Simulated assay, not measured.
Amino acid sequence: MGHGGDVIAELTTDHREVDELFEQLDNALPGSERRKQLADALTIELVRHSVAEEQYLYPAVREHLDGGDAIADREIADHARVEALLKELEGRDADDTDFDRLVRELRTEVTAHVADEEHNLFPQLREGAHGYVLESLGEKIREAKKTAPTRPHPSTPDNPAISKLLAPGLGLADRARDYVTGRGQ
């Protein structure tokens, strides 16, 4: 959490951490408790990352890029599909019959989303926004991830202003629940 640099460096580092979690999931013994722990860690990282992007990155995309509304809408739709899969995965143990299928679907969605951001969105943003804006966004993203939820909440609105109001409370409740259950420890 919180790597430093501008928004593109911050989010790219998050992407590599997610890649590593998927690799660890692939290498964990099928049906093992370790696979469930890794799925929980992956969920925590993806939810925090997505909430921060929706609060700060996508509003900047709308503001600084030609066609930014369509780009942001597409990225948010990607997040909704990922969040629905995370919610479904959250209720599964590693030995459940759907666990591996959900992980595969999640990886497919996340990999496509990351590739789109890194090959299309990030270069456009680097070109369309001043370096100061990118640095400021990096800091805002890091701060948002500190209080963001750690569990999927697919029914919450995709509106950045509402998210900024709700996310800290949801995040606090999620972290309290994680502490009590030992999730993510």
Rank of each mutant, 00 (worst) to 15 (best):
A115W: 07
L137E: 01
R104Q: 15
D69R: 03
E90K: 11
K87S: 14
A84R: 13
A94P: 02
I44K: 08
A112F: 02
F122W: 07
E127D: 09
V133Q: 03
H130E: 13
A60E: 07
Y132R: 13
D116I: 04
R81A: 13
E63R: 11
P59Q: 06
E53C: 03
F122G: 03
L137H: 02
V103W: 04
V51P: 01
Y132A: 09
H119M: 09
L106N: 12
V114L: 04
Q37S: 03
G131F: 09
K87E: 14
R104S: 15
G68F: 00
D40E: 12
S50G: 14
L42W: 05
L89K: 07
V82A: 14
R101K: 15
A129Y: 01
V110A: 13
A84E: 11
E105W: 14
E118F: 02
R126W: 02
V51A: 10
A41E: 11
R62A: 06
H79M: 14
R104E: 14
H79P: 12
D116T: 09
F122T: 03
L38A: 00
V114H: 02
L46D: 05
L85A: 12
F99Y: 04
H113K: 08
V133D: 05
D66G: 05
Y58G: 07
E75Y: 06
L38Q: 00
V82Y: 11
A41D: 09
S136Q: 12
K87V: 14
